[in-house]
Every structure is written in structure tokens, then in C-alpha cells.
Design a protein around this nucleic acid. Structure first.
Lengths: 218, 218
DNA sequence: GAAGTTCGGTCAACAATGTTGACTCCAGCT
DNA sequence: AGCTGGAGTCAACATTGTTGACCGAACTTC
């Protein structure tokens, strides 16, 4: 019964990295063992990538250590042995970074538009990591991670481009607006915004963010 | 006598569906139960309020059915028997509402400021419910609840005050900005914003929201 | 008034979860 | 050869949400 469930789950989530990982651990044990510490590195790697994929797609509470172990082709106990706990494994796998060059390259009077484009092109794995962090941030350590992420993903790059006594406040407000867009789209799932065409959303949010970053003196 | 009991229950709970459910279940024996054991209705009530408090303060995943039962002075099995599951109990207890009269009373050119004041005065139980919904929205039904809440807590009251072809878009963007403020303060925990004095935050966010709701034609 | 039904309450159990400890196995060093 | 240390396996633990069996009291029906 359990095997049936596991194979079903595995075949349902067919992934190239998973097959490779399994081949690495299962098919070439001799070769792997010959290299230094043996299959330790590669199983650790398998666990890491399996956990990253599962946490991203199913969130923290809905992915189980046994699922991770099955996906990585190993034992639940080994998952805990390598990374001390499920939470530490989560923290080690869920990092949200984005290149801030696009934000630093664009001229200052187009910073809002650049940020809007950046946010609305953000998708795929970034969405999964962001949602996993937000949903999991009931746990104190995950909350800390989300705070740090917000700080050095949004606030710091923006503040670096601004000047004046209230640069910090403007950067934080723009970061809040940026986070609010991701919140509305991904967390709350505002269908009205989701159905808008990208161009108009970029334009409207671009000018909005621009006004926050460099307010017009009316 | 029955009416008296019912009104008491209603005023204590404050939810239409719940009252109907109680009327359905507690049809006949309600009077005698109150006089004799006094347990049936009041246990349900105890479970409800204990669950509400625990969900608000500790979130969905960190509060356990056994904790709720202990707090209500009853048995874990009874918690499930009254409300079909932990998730349904959560959905029945976690309602986020706010009086929208303050938003409807204020003149249109002060709507942004009014909303900003409303948001920044929001605290206490509203914070707990909001965070519980956001954190728990990994679960599909809780996600639906959060979407509905966002829609008829922010979007609808704002759109009702706006006119023009893009009223819906402006309302949704303002709602996203509002949600972004709560996200930055409560979910991400932006220390810079948290440490700002309330007056300046109200002022800055007031004009920001006002610009979104009724953009200045520059 | 007696029998039956219903419903709240209690207890024990279940499967699934994260985690730990005992044990095996094998490479590399002394 | 013998020892050490680390990777892997297996069985167990406590805790979680949830269910089923039983109990007792009260309302309904005869």
C-alpha cells in the first residue's frame, strides 16, 4: 500500500533532476564510493534539490520529510541526519534572490517602471519561494528569513539609488508597495489584477512606484 | 425563553451562518440542556472562543486541537464532533471584518487619508486574524477565504466610492497598496516602518493612497 | 410509565508526522 | 589485523488530526 502510494507520487512528479539523482546514488555506487566520502555528497545534493522543489511547489507544512526522502531516493532519517531538522532544511533551501543590476542600470526617472517590470516578470521558482516564505513565516525562524529577504531584496537596492533625508522612508514605502503587488497577485490572488494585461499593469504600477520613489512636488 | 437564549447566542457570536447552524443542531433540547447540564451550547461556544483566541495568537499550524480542547475544558474528540475538522473550525472562527462607514463617510478627496488612518489603527484581533489567514493560506480553503476577505474588505468598499471607466482597477491597486502596508508591517515586519511615528506614516500613506484612488492629472 | 431514539461526552485507538537511537556496513588509517 | 568514523537502514517514540465504540441523560412515542 505504501509502496503503491510512493510510486504513484514519484511517477506523478516526474522530474529530470530526480532521475539523475537516483541514477547517481543507485546505479553507480562503486564509482561514487571510490571518490572520497562516497555517496554522501550526492545524497545530500539529492535531498537538497528534492526539498527545494517540494517546498517551492507544496509549501512548508504540506511537504513531508518522508516525501522529500522518497523523492531523493533515500531514507527519512537521513534527511534529518544531514540537515538537523525539517525547518533547517527549509531555511537552507529557500533563498530568494534577484539580480539587482536591472534596478541599478535603469536611469533614476525610470526606476519605478523598471521595478514594475521586474516584479511582473518575476515568476516560476521565485513565486514558489516567496509563497513558501510567506506561508511558513508563522514559524519564527522563517519569519526572520522573510524579514531579511524583504530587507535586502527590496529595501536596500532601492535605498542605494535614492538620496535625501527621507531616502530610507521612500525606499521602505516602495518596498511595501512592491510587496503589496506580490501579495495581491500571489497571496490574496486578486483575480481582477491577475486578468489585467501586463502592459497596463506595468505602466500603472511603474508610475505609482516612481511617485513613491521620487515624489512630484505638486 | 427560547428566543432569549437564541438572541444571547447570536449577540455573542455575530455570524449569520453560525447562528443558523446552531439553530439547526440545537433545535429541541436547548432549553433543557441549559437548565440541566448547561453544557451543550456553552461547550460549543467555549470551543469557538478558545479556538478563535488560539488561532489568532498562535496561527493555524501551531495551534493544536488538543490545545483548543484543553482551553475550552473539554475533549479533543468533541472539538471535531462539533466542527467537522480543524480546518472548518478555523474557517468558522477566522472572520476579518471592519466597519466601512468610516470609509463611506469621509469626503472623496480625503479617502486616502481615511484609509491610511483605518489601516494604521487596525491592531489587536484584526492583526491576528489577518496573519492567521495569510499564514494558513497554503491550505486551499483558507486561501479562498483570504481572497474573499481581500475582495470585500478592501476592493469593494473602495470601488463603491469611485467612478469612471477604470474605477475597478484603481480600487484594486489601492487595495493592493493597503494590503502591502499590512504585509510590510505584520508579515515581513519592516522595522523601519514599524518604528516610524504614526503621524508621518498616516500622512505619507494617505497621499499615496489618494494618488492611487484619484490620480492627479499632471 | 416503558421502550426507543437522539445527542453530548469520554476513552481508546488509528494513521501520519518529525525525530531519535541502535545497529550494520564499509573505507581508510594505524 | 584492528580500530575509527561516517553513511545507510530499521524500528521505535511522541505528537498530530480524526474516528469509532461505548455511556448516560433527556425527549418522543406508545
Amino acid at each position: 500500500m505504501t509502496e503503491l502510494l510512493e510510486t504513484r507520487t514519484q511517477s506523478a512528479s516526474g522530474s529530470c533532476e530526480r532521475v539523475n539523482a537516483q541514477l547517481r546514488t543507485a546505479r553507480t555506487p562503486i564509482l561514487a564510493r571510490m571518490l572520497q566520502t562516497g555517496s554522501s555528497v550526492s545524497t545530500r545534493e539529492s535531498i537538497h534539490s528534492a526539498a527545494a522543489q517540494l517546498f517551492r511547489s507544496r509549501g512548508y507544512s504540506r511537504t513531508t520529510v518522508r516525501q522529500i526522502a522518497a523523492e531523493a531516493g533515500t531514507d527519512p532519517a537521513l534527511v534529518i541526519r544531514h540537515f538537523k531538522s525539517k525547518e533547517l532544511l527549509f531555511l537552507e533551501t529557500m533563498h530568494l534572490t534577484l539580480d539587482d543590476e536591472p534596478l541599478l542600470d535603469v536611469p533614476l526617472d525610470r526606476l519605478g517602471e523598471g521595478l514594475a517590470e521586474l516584479l511582473l516578470d518575476l515568476g516560476g521558482s521565485a513565486r514558489g519561494v516567496f509563497l513558501a516564505l510567506v506561508h511558513g513565516s508563522n514559524e519564527p525562524h522563517i519569519h526572520d528569513r522573510l524579514r531579511d529577504t524583504h530587507e535586502h531584496l527590496f529595501v536596500e537596492p532601492l535605498r542605494r539609488r535614492l538620496t535625501g533625508p527621507d531616502a530610507d522612508v521612500r525606499a521602505r514605502m516602495a518596498a511595501a508597495v512592491a510587496g503589496g503587488l506580490l501579495y495581491a497577485l500571489w497571496v490574496a490572488g486578486d483575480q481582477g489584477l491577475l486578468r489585467m494585461n501586463r502592459g497596463e499593469l506595468v505602466s500603472r504600477y511603474g508610475t505609482l512606484l516612481q511617485d513613491v520613489l521620487a515624489p512630484r512636488t505638486s
